[in-house]
């Protein structure tokens, strides 16, 4: 699988954002991040109803080797979280852009986001 997928937007902190025609956006972490983290064993997500702020921490991702902050790539209200990844954090490794999504936000303001090309270039890779 490619480490970076076209049609998504990316933050410098390795989150991806999937637009949805003006509806809530899905957010996850990229394969670049999961590769660097190693096997993820625990994830702490914001709760439904929380307001997250672009560029600020909103949770934690813990792998066998380390703990990393989860940064919100956009500002808005959390409308849904993925209970499957809380129970089975390995989904984030196996399918970071699919079943490993983390939460959905009704966006009031976008953070600084990159295109797939820009994100791939920033991480020394290609699409």
């Amino acid at each position: 699988m490619s480490k970076v997928i076209a049609d998504l937007l990316y933050s410098a902190e390795h989150e991806w954002v999937a637009g949805n025609g003006g509806g809530p956006v899905a957010i996850g972490i990229t394969a670049v991040a999961t590769d660097a983290l190693g096997d993820i064993v625990y994830v702490d997500l914001p709760e439904v109803g929380d307001t997250v702020t672009a560029g600020e921490t909103c949770g934690e991702v813990e792998s066998t080797k380390s703990v990393s902050d989860l940064y919100a790539p956009v500002t808005g209200e959390v409308v849904e979280t993925n209970a499957d990844v809380v129970d089975s954090p390995e989904l984030i490794n196996s399918d970071p852009y699919g079943n490993g999504w983390l939460f959905k936000v009704a966006v009031t303001e976008e953070g600084p986001l990159m295109s797939a090309e820009e994100y791939a270039a920033a991480n020394g890779g290609e699409l």
Binding site: G38, D39, T64, K65
Partner: peptide, 8 residues
């Protein structure tokens, strides 16, 4: 080598 595929 830190890991080859998955350290788990």
């Amino acid at each position: 080598p830190l890991k080859y595929s998955s350290e788990l």
